[in-house]
Write a protein that binds this DNA or RNA. Structure first.
Length: 775
DNA sequence: GGTGAACCTCTTTTT
DNA sequence: GAGGTTCACC
């Protein structure tokens, strides 16, 4: 296929910065690969080209495509292709000494971070009930995303409980990280930036030779071309990193403001919006011809995204024709939804759509369970993207912790993780004593464990510790003797008794874990074979940066894909089934809460609240534009989620769909949001009925549906007449004695429903529903 | 002092 | 439904 004129221009532009605004499905990846290939054709050495992607998956795909394109002509392995994090890690591995990291530093994932922060809480005597360790880490990460250090925040003099707490705990957390020779995800970016910024600031000594020049300076001058994908999702540090690495380079960024979905992670859309203005001579090229989706799908996408304000604006068009209508389906509950999803999958398979071209999307991981269950029941294979990956399983993390500890004796976190795993009689009290002395002397736990008596550990516990240390030393000696990694892992699992402990447990679960361990050893062996020159540190890095386990080729290739919409970014499928399209599921309740609060307080939305809702809308846009030929959208009138029953109203995004492009009636105006209903409240499976007239004095008058879509909550407490009360917080209610009040909650079932009502001047009263009437 | 069983809470999205 | 925490028992 030929490139279209806009794509061609983006491939060929040289000389000044370039922004490619690429709508969904407009051939963005093609442009990037062609551009890089063209550069190499022109004689730019591959090692002087840097391509940054957002996910490892995208990086791998790009590399693969490039290899295919340049077969034999150029050594593609010389290209720098990777995510921001992997590129930073690579730089720090080589030059990280000056920012306090050795060659073998560890990368801590979210789980490691939490464990470390919990330790800080304990050490500084902080109560986890007031502020959660994760919350502190969240704030800390936001700082890092913006490129701020704790000292800078303190200098800003931002007073406030949270700021002070973050500073206090964060500082100690960082100290412990450095002491353990480790970096978290945020550090990778921040430290790489710090390293690059520092380089070249010191005046060269008189008479310095070329060999004395800081190699990091070379890195800043190295690249002649830098291409950044998904630029709309970069945060300020990432943008800074790009800046620093393209000192000499021509910079080309590619992205789509309508697909910015990582604001919550510190990404800043204004960076792509403002890109041309900040760079003189910057060229802007729009890609608007969509090659992916058929007309009805595109129209649905446009109907959703056009309601956002503050976008650069693009109109996608396609030559693929209208295609089939988008299916919209109202389901009774999440189980029926799951059954429907499976039937849709079967239909697609019968139409000879390959399984891996069928995807099921949901807003949150929690929604996947019901669908997985249904797929399993019907004997269908599926592959989950994201979520708890292979490398996040306990047994794998434990094994990795052993390996990391062998590699890096300072890694206290790994020490505490496995010192009593499997149980070997070294409990909390003992570890507590070690930790106290270790903190006091500022040495590692393993060091203290060598002489536990000094920490006040005696008798049996001390003996066990000696044995443990001896075992670790032995294994570490094996590592340094150059035993192949697969072999080393096997020895670790044998020698530590980890494997035996699982085997003896005998449960199905334990058996599965043993299988996972075998698989892990196998993967490690494969890795060594494929990359004979790489070390354990290299392997560990790869593992910690690859979030999902799809790269392992572990069988599930020909399977239906299940994933959150976030992980669907950048992918495309013949058939997409978008589930859970209800208010409070999608858009997520956390976001709607802002709207509710604003309504209650009678004020307009704050900018950040509005921004969150617009981000959800962009997420919906991303979901819809993943579909090539078939799109199915489902919502459930009832849903059990988080062990709670919800009544569902169709998502606003569903209501925005153009009726002419949809099979199945698009729900009409819904003026009240979905709400949680206490378990046990009987909910209807009544056939669709004509909607109740608006503002009729009946409990559900606030929900109006078009004919053809069943209204939820038709039946309810018998006492209130034929029609059911659709209860919602904030609802106006009258009581004979207390007068008018607002509903704040309810409890009970049937005719025993009790309402909690707030009466002005009286306070909250609990009253049986039948003594109240809706207003 | 350590271990296991019963109870409790908390649920967005990812490198 | 999973993870953590508390408690009672070895």
């Amino acid at each position: 296929m030929q490139l279209n004129p806009a794509q061609q221009a983006a491939v060929e532009h040289r000389g000044s910065p370039l922004l490619v605004l690429a709508g969904a499905g407009t051939g963005k990846t093609r442009v990037i690969t062609h551009r890089v290939a063209a550069l190499m054709d022109e004689g730019v050495p591959p090692w002087r080209i840097l391509a940054v992607t957002f996910t490892n998956k995208a990086a791998a795909e790009m590399r693969a495509r490039m290899e295919k394109m340049c077969e034999g002509k150029v050594d593609v392995s010389q290209l720098w292709v990777g995510t921001f994090h992997s590129i930073s890690a690579r730089i720090l591995r080589r030059h990280g000494e000056s920012v306090g990291l050795s060659r073998n530093f560890a990368i801590y994932d979210t789980d490691d971070q939490t464990r470390l922060m919990k330790r800080v809480f304990k050490e500084l005597n902080r109560d986890e009930d007031q502020v959660k360790p994760r919350a502190i880490l969240g704030h800390l990460d936001q700082l890092k995303n913006r490129g701020l250090t704790i000292s800078q925040v303190e200098q800003l003099g931002l007073e406030g409980f949270m700021t002070r707490l973050v500073a206090l705990l964060g500082r100690r957390y960082e100290e412990l990280l450095r002491a353990a020779d480790a970096a978290d995800f945020g550090d990778l970016l921040v430290l790489a930036v710090k390293l690059l910024e520092k380089a070249g600031t010191e005046q060269p000594r008189p008479g310095a030779q070329l060999v004395d020049v800081d190699p990091v300076i070379g890195l800043k001058r190295r690249f002649l071309h830098v291409v950044v994908d998904e630029y709309q999702d970069t945060n300020p540090v990432q943008a800074r990193l790009v800046e620093l690495l393209s000192g000499r380079a021509q910079l080309c960024v590619v992205g789509d403001d309508d697909q910015a979905i990582y604001g919550w992670r510190g990404a800043d859309v204004s960076q792509i919006l403002g890109f041309p203005d900040q760079r003189p001579g910057c060229e802007l090229i729009r890609l608007e011809q969509n090659y992916r989706s058929t007309g009805h799908i595109l129209r649905c996408a446009d109907a959703i995204i056009r309601r956002n304000e503050g976008r650069l604006g693009k109109t996608l068009w396609s030559e693929l024709g209208d295609g089939s209508l988008v299916t919209l389906r109202a389901c009774e509950d999440e189980r029926e939804e799951a059954r429907f999803v499976v039937n849709e999958i079967l239909d697609a398979l019968n139409e000879d759509i390959p399984a891996e071209e069928i995807a099921v999307f949901y807003r949150t991981h929690a929604q996947s369970r019901v669908i997985e269950q249904q797929l399993t029941d019907r004997g269908m294979r599926y592959a989950i993207f994201g979520g708890l990956g292979f490398f996040e399983r306990k047994e794998i993390k434990d094994t990795l912790a052993y390996l990391r500890l062998l590699q890096n004796p300072n890694s206290d976190l790994d020490f505490t993780r496995i010192v009593n795993e499997p149980a070997r009689g070294i409990g909390d009290t003992t570890v507590g004593r070690l930790t106290a002395l270790a903190a006091n002397r500022n040495v590692s736990l393993l060091t203290i464990a060598r002489a536990p008596e000094e920490a006040g550990v005696s008798g049996a516990a001390a003996k066990r510790l000696h044995a443990f240390v001896a075992m670790i030393d032995e294994l570490a000696a094996r590592l340094h003797a150059g035993v192949p990694l697969g072999q080393l892992a096997t020895e670790v699992l044998e020698r530590t008794g980890y494997r035996d402990a699982l085997v003896h447990e005998g449960s199905d679960e334990a058996e599965a874990r043993v299988e996972n361990l075998d698989e892990f050893v196998g993967a490690l062996t494969d890795f060594v074979q494929e990359h004979p020159d790489q070390t354990l540190a290299d392997y560990l890095e790869q593992v910690s940066l690859v979030a999902d386990a799809d790269g392992g080729g572990r069988g599930e290739v020909r399977a239906v894909r299940l994933m959150t919409i976030h992980s669907a970014k950048g992918l495309e499928f013949e058939k997409v089934i978008l589930t859970g399209m209800e208010e409070k599921v999608f858009p997520h309740s956390r976001v709607i809460a802002g709207e509710d609060a604003a309504r209650e307080e009678g004020r307009r939305l704050r900018p950040e609240e509005r921004a969150q809702i617009e981000e959800e809308r962009r997420l919906a846009y991303v979901a819809v534009t993943r579909a090539k030929r078939q799109l199915v959208i489902t919502w459930a009138k009832r849903r059990r989620l988080y062990n709670q029953e919800f009544i569902g109203t169709p998502s606003r995004f569903v209501r925005d769909l153009p009726p002419d492009s949809v099979r199945g009636r698009v729900p009409g105006v819904v003026r009240r949001e979905a709400m949680a209903v206490p378990q046990g409240l009987s909910l209807p499976s009544a056939p669709p009925r004509a909607p109740a007239p608006v503002r009729e004095s009946s409990w559900n008058s606030d929900i109006v549906y078009d004919e053809g879509v069943a209204a939820p909550a038709r039946r309810g407490p018998a006492a209130v007449g034929g029609d059911a009360p659709a209860l919602y917080k904030g609802m106006a209610v009258r009581h004979r004695q207390y007068g008018e009040g607002t509903l704040v909650g309810w409890d009970g079932t049937g005719s025993n429903v009790k309402l909690a009502i707030n009466f002005p001047g009286v306070g909250v009263k609990t009253i049986l529903a039948r003594f109240c009437e809706p207003l």
